[in-house]
Amino acid sequence: MNNSRIWSIVIFAAAVLIFGLSWIIIGSQAGHNLTDAFLVTVAAFLTLSILSFLYKDNPYYKFAEHLFVGVSAAYWMSVGFWSTFVGNLLPRISPSLCTYFGVPYKGFDIFFFIPLILGVFLLMRLSSKMGWLSRWSLAFIVGTTAGLNLIRYLRSDFISQVSNTFVPLVTDWRGIGPFFSDFSLSITGQFAMSLSNWVIFVGVFCGLIYFFFSKEHKGAFGYASRMGIWVLMITFGASFGYTVMGRVSLLVGRLTFLFHDWLGLVK
């Protein structure tokens, strides 16, 4: 037996011992029974298995990963089946299936046969002869949502972003007036505001220039585009830095589970 095999047996034995003990100890505590002690232990085991990936890929991680995939895929399948298929489709097409599944029948609606047929077309993929029918279903989905998204992007992202750019570059400007009497500049107030508006305008302008594809980025155009990518990079840096703290708090949450819920070390 080589060294790594011995090590893996030792680690396996230790894992069995630790989690076995944990099961018995938690189960024997007041307010717990063996079933929920088992489940908490499983959760802790899976948590540690996933964390072990940080060290390297290992059998525990592989096990947790594969189990996770199977369970979660079936989870979504079940949720979809009950809420959409049984909940939305059946009550419109078949009284007898409704009785079988115990859902209230909502009255026959011929329109619900369309998705049913398209759904069956989709399943035709599995047959080599009728597979082309599945494209009808795909065309249905893609067509509908392409139309929907075309409008959605214009409406929500686009027009509001454009109209938000409409800010005066000299804020609180009341005209020059005789001897500039109406026009005051304070470093913190109007000046800073105007400066920010300028930066926003120049930033948006150069950013858009960067995204020009059909023009060579040379000369003045090139400078603007270069400026644009700088603004983009500053932004990416800032939002990267901003997210760090949020991610650390997620880890704290997991450690709390291990030390509080499982081991009970932290109250």
Partner: peptide, 23 residues
């Protein structure tokens, strides 16, 4: 300032571009 000014500008440029590309 970074989050409110250059960040806003860059996001706006990206979103406008994305909007056009998506459409």
């Amino acid at each position: 300032w970074l989050l409110n000014v250059p960040n806003l500008a860059a996001k706006r440029a990206i979103i406008i571009g994305l909007g056009l590309g998506a459409v």
